[in-house]
Structure formats: structure tokens, C-alpha cells
């Protein structure tokens, strides 16, 4: 039911938490899934990024994977995160696609929040 990659990320999420800086969220407790991302940018690159998740193991694992893959990239990369790639890597079943779309929404909201402030900690 869960791939080894999901199990690893669920058991040992290295980027769980909350940072001061740009943030974006999507979903709600009522709908069963809520994800929140927060990040800091230094010299035009994502220097620190964290997530918080209320959701299934696939959601938690996909959040961890998203943060891992985005660290070190320009903030604009948040808008290009590929749910399909995450689904493939984590072997997420098709009925869970909605969870990945929520993560995509939260990342885009995070980018939008950063766009409004453009706060770069090196500045």
C-alpha cells in the first residue's frame, strides 16, 4: 500500500516545521488534508524550507519530497513543481492525486506570498 520511499519520508521527515518568511497553505481539516509550506530565500535561492501537514502518509511524504527537491532553487521553481513526478517517485496511487494537487496549490500560494514581499535574507 505504501512504497519504501513513502515509509522513509513519513518516518523521518527532515524538513518538518515552520519558518518565518514566505508561506503558503492549502486544504483544511474538514476535507482531511491541510498542508503549509514556509521558506526563506538567500541570494535569490531557497535557502531554508519547511512544511507542516495534516494528512495521510502519502501527503506527508510528498511534502517532504517537494521541499527536498526545491531547496537551492530560485523561488520561481515553486510554480513549476511537478505532481506527476512526485506520484511516480513515491508510487502514489491515482486516487490520491487530489492530495498532490493540494500540495501544488500550497507551493504556488507560497510563491505568491514571496512575490508580494520578495524578502531575500541576504539583502
Amino acid at each position: 500500500m505504501y512504497s519504501r520511499a513513502v515509509e522513509q519520508a513519513f518516518e523521518h521527515p527532515a524538513h518538518a516545521g515552520k519558518l518565518s518568511g514566505a508561506c503558503g497553505a492549502a486544504g483544511s481539516r474538514e476535507t482531511g488534508t491541510r498542508v503549509e509550506f514556509s521558506m526563506q530565500v538567500a541570494s535569490g535561492r531557497i535557502s531554508r524550507m519547511c512544511f507542516q501537514a495534516y494528512g495521510c502518509p502519502h501527503t506527508i511524504a510528498a511534502c517532504e519530497l517537494a521541499v527536498e527537491s526545491l531547496l537551492g532553487h530560485p523561488p520561481e521553481a515553486l510554480g513549476c513543481w511537478d505532481p506527476g513526478g512526485a506520484a511516480e517517485r513515491l508510487k502514489i496511487p491515482v486516487e490520491k492525486t487530489g492530495k498532490l494537487l493540494l500540495i501544488q496549490d500550497a507551493l504556488r500560494n507560497c510563491l505568491q506570498d514571496w512575490d508580494t514581499t520578495e524578502l531575500d535574507v541576504t539583502e
Binding site: 518538518a16 515552520k18 491541510r34 503549509e36 507542516q52 495534516y54
Partner: peptide, 10 residues
Amino acid sequence: VARLRDLSPY
């Protein structure tokens, strides 16, 4: 329960 609450935004 403690671990999942730590992970949760709630």
C-alpha cells in the same frame, strides 16, 4: 499521536 501532532499545522 505526539509525532503527528508535531507535524500538523493544527
